[in-house]
Simulated assay, not measured.
Amino acid sequence: MADPTQTDTNQAHAIDTPLHEVRVDLGSRGYDICIGGGALAHLADRLRAVTPSGRVAVVTDETVHALHGEALAGALSDFQTHMIVRPEGEDQKSMEGLDAVLDSLFRAGFDRSDTVLAFGGGVIGDLTGFAASVFKRGAPFVQVPTTLLAQVDSSVGGKTAINNAYGKNLVGAFYQPRLVLIDTDLLSTLPLRQIKAGYAEIVKYGLIDRPEFFSALDDGLGKRVLDRDADALREAISVSCAAKADVVAQDEREGGVRALLNLGHTFAHALERVAGYGGALLHGEAVSAGLDMAFEFSARTTLCPQLAADRVRNHLTRLSMPTRLDMSHFLGDPDSVMSHMRQDKKNSGGQITLILCHDIGRSFVHPGVDEAELAAYLEDIAP
């Protein structure tokens, strides 16, 4: 049985421990990302500062609710809460999943002064954010991400979406949260596969425009992250969130530089579409392979040195991260892969846009990619 005195001491310590804060500077719509172990103990105070009412609707999934629902309920004990617990899985990001969340909000009598809080991974965050954006034309939205991928990527920046028959995240809205609260302690229950999926997005930031961060990851920080070292997690999450916040502040709606955040993602989304959304391929696993493919294609088309592409693949391989070489079972039909890449949201004028690289830390937007070169590449790597 737990010692109640010890529990109280731990809670007090968590509250006294300062959080690392990153500001997403969007003027009147700006918000803080609060990062640290025990961050849930700060949730009530942070919510009072950013939400207009004392009612909170929490959207979560069955797994997260079973693991951390009691802790969240304790953190929200001063609020009137309504729990919406959905099944786990990518298929929740659908019109049916959206309708279920909205129906629950209406039945509970919520209005647009009440807060909708996402407590889960990227699927829950995307679904909840989109629901909040359309519920009575917009309700306050807060992110409390519980996976590493959501903590460093999908919870920040205001992209909300569901999937449809044509692809991933094709129905959605830009809708910024009022607050992102990241409790690194929640990662203790996350399977290693999910930690690795999140790590792919961490590596991405170094490859986009922070070569010194990639070097630190390559020199040992990355292994410490995968080992769930508390200091390493806090550092890597903070750098990743700061990198994304900088880009979002410059380009909130992906009209320019924000497209760089999709490095590796055009390949990744095509791989996910081929794999289906049943769990055979996680988003972060596809991104890891997509980063490798973006550098491999860049080197093949003489846009970047082969040495850079080799360094990226070697780093991923050393940490047992997926590379293109692990994707053969999804690359057997090059025409299908190409067809899915043509559906990507970054495309313009009927032409495919890719994020490619001149070197590590020197990514760029490449509109109008030569489809013959891309098709030849996909043919060559098909098993």
Rank of each mutant, 00 (worst) to 15 (best):
V248R: 02
E96H: 14
G37L: 02
A14G: 00
Q6C: 00
R318I: 00
R318N: 12
Q343Y: 13
A236H: 06
G278A: 14
Q343M: 15
A243K: 03
S298A: 14
D111F: 13
D99V: 11
R300V: 00
G284H: 04
G54H: 10
F267G: 02
S113P: 00
L271R: 02
G279H: 12
S298D: 08
K159Y: 11
T115W: 05
G125S: 07
K159D: 05
A44N: 10
L354A: 06
L331R: 04
G361N: 10
D99W: 14
R210D: 11
R23F: 10
R29L: 12
F130Y: 12
Y377N: 06
R23N: 11
A131R: 04
H42T: 09
I360T: 03
A294T: 06
I195G: 00
P18H: 10
L307K: 13
D8Y: 03
A200G: 13
H68T: 04
P177W: 03
H20T: 15
L331P: 01
V24Q: 05
D333G: 00
G368P: 00
N314R: 15
A108Q: 11
A299K: 08
A299G: 12
G69W: 09
F110E: 04
A249H: 03
R342G: 04
A66Y: 06
F174H: 12
A197M: 00
K93I: 04
V247A: 08
L181I: 01
L102Y: 13
Y205M: 13
V239N: 03
N10T: 11
K345I: 10
E272F: 06
L221G: 02
T115Q: 04
R137T: 08
F295C: 06
T17W: 00
L149Q: 07
R107K: 15
R29D: 13
M293R: 03
G157L: 06
A73G: 14
V156R: 02
R29T: 14
A150K: 07
R107C: 11
D153H: 12
P334K: 05
V101E: 08
Q80Y: 06
L291I: 09
D114H: 13
L325S: 11
D114A: 11
R46E: 14
L192R: 05
D91C: 05
P4Y: 07
Q92D: 06
L186Q: 03
C357M: 08
V180K: 02
H315V: 02
A268F: 03
N163H: 11
A131W: 05
Q306C: 10
R193Q: 08
P18C: 09
T353A: 13
L26C: 08
H65N: 12
Q176R: 11
I352P: 02
S339R: 13
R273H: 09
Q351S: 14
V101P: 05
G37I: 01
A376C: 10
A275T: 04
L221F: 11
L76F: 08
D231R: 14
I352T: 09
H366R: 14
F110W: 07
N164Q: 09
L179V: 10
G122D: 06
R313D: 07
A268M: 08
A132N: 05
A382G: 12
A49M: 12
H269F: 09
F130A: 06
D333S: 07
A268K: 01
L102I: 15
P305D: 09
D153G: 13
